[in-house]
Amino acid sequence: MALLDIKNLHANVAGNKILKGINLTINPGEVHAIMGPNGSGKSTLANVLAGNEIYEKTQGKIQFDGADLDDLAAHERARAGLFLAFQYPVEIAGISNMYFLKAAVNAVREHRGEEQLDAMDFLDLIEDKKQVVKIRDDLLGRAVNSGFSGGEKKRNEIFQMAMLEPKLGILDETDSGLDIDALRIVSDGVNALRTPDRSFLVITHYQRLLDYIVPDFVHVMVSGEIVKSGGKELALELENDGYASWAGEEGV
């Protein structure tokens, strides 16, 4: 059974039609990349999947791990194993990263019928997972994303993903604003989290990220539609030709 099955998805933001009939199926363990120019609707897709209420789904059906996403609020989707790594992670003053992570991990564990982690077990989990993206201890004690550099914020997103162990990780332009070293750390982190069952949806503008996180499938999104799908070689094709040909076909 597919992990994520999107059928004819249409969505609006503030009355504007952004997604115009998206179809996408992701099976367990697959890595899909969505590439496209700015404004094509890539981030909208990510946020519709995550349950951001600013985005209005007007048509279509999204099945995630057997459940209809319409029935699940954002926190229930997260608990069911859907994780969005934000393009712009939010800074939250006054809540330490540790406290926030503990609340998140225990919320997800409760949903899975697992015991709440006590302070010691939680610290063990932190020690184990912080290696994934080489998170420094001082970032754990600081307020969530507050005063973090761009790269630290993105690493913190992947770190959270490692802590929450989702079924599907959606990376929304995780490569934006990263230098080559940070890009490598983040990509290594994602690759370390790949398992036969865990799937990823990697949203990016540039082919560069896909040199590190090698996808099974690549989809090209233009003006709210997937205009072409293929294997990882499609990303290279885009690198050479750009998005102009598809945009041209549509007369944009």
Binding site: H75, F86, I92, H111
Partner: peptide, 18 residues
């Protein structure tokens, strides 16, 4: 609040945390 929610924290708890 949305950010906390995407990490599994329900709105009531998120509200209290913030």
């Amino acid at each position: 609040l949305y950010y906390l929610q995407t990490r599994g924290i329900d709105p009531k708890q998120g509200h209290a945390m913030l």
